[in-house]
């Protein structure tokens, strides 16, 4: 948290030194401040800040690529005859425990084309997903577990660690 404040202060300083506080200057200042803090982190003591932000950026990049890729797949399937479709309803066992994690995971599953979360069991152990391309049910389950769920757990676990320290 301290590093985030420092970063904001650096961004404001940069904007003020430029003589004008507007969005472009603040964003540029934030990026430059981030780089400065990254370089200086050995002197300041290793913070969890950088891992978290870069993880978030990595996740957004991963998710965007996934979104574009699978949307093109669905589009091609809609425009031609639907021969590739192998729909199933699969049950995916959940490792995510808290409500926030499960909600985020379910929303992300629904947003990635080819999978749609239908419901979560009462004891929050299993999520039921309708998938469009699943020749092999186990492979589809593994894809969700290793892809999206791993990312969600990573994001949240780093969050908790940061709050405790």
């Amino acid at each position: 948290m301290r590093y985030f404040l420092l970063n904001i202060i650096l961004a404001l300083t940069w904007a003020m030194l430029n003589g004008e506080i507007n969005s472009g200057n603040i964003i540029a200042g934030f990026i430059i401040g981030y780089i400065i803090l990254y370089v200086a982190q050995r002197a300041l003591g290793a913070p969890p800040y950088f891992g978290k932000i870069s993880r978030l950026i990595q996740f957004v990049a991963f998710f965007s690529v996934e979104l574009v890729k699978s949307n093109i797949k669905v589009a091609s399937d809609v425009l031609t005859k639907h021969n590739y479709m192998k729909p199933r309803i699969i049950a995916v066992p959940l490792d995510a425990k808290t409500d926030a994690e499960i909600t985020l995971l379910a929303n992300l599953i629904s947003l990635t084309p080819g999978s749609l979360s239908l419901d979560v069991s009462n004891d929050k152990k299993v999520i039921y997903v309708h998938v469009m391309y699943a020749e092999d049910a186990d492979a589809a389950k593994r894809e969700i577990k290793n892809g999206l769920e791993r990312w969600v757990l990573k994001l949240f676990s780093s969050d908790k660690k940061d709050r405790l320290s």
């Binding site: 669905v74 729909p87 990635t112 080819g114 749609l116």
Partner: peptide, 18 residues
């Protein structure tokens, strides 16, 4: 065009949002 309700839901949720 999609043959059942769930797949129509797929098209509506994702392609339209995208």
């Amino acid at each position: 065009r999609m043959p059942d309700l769930y797949m129509r839901l797929h098209a509506n949720t994702k392609s339209a949002t995208f």
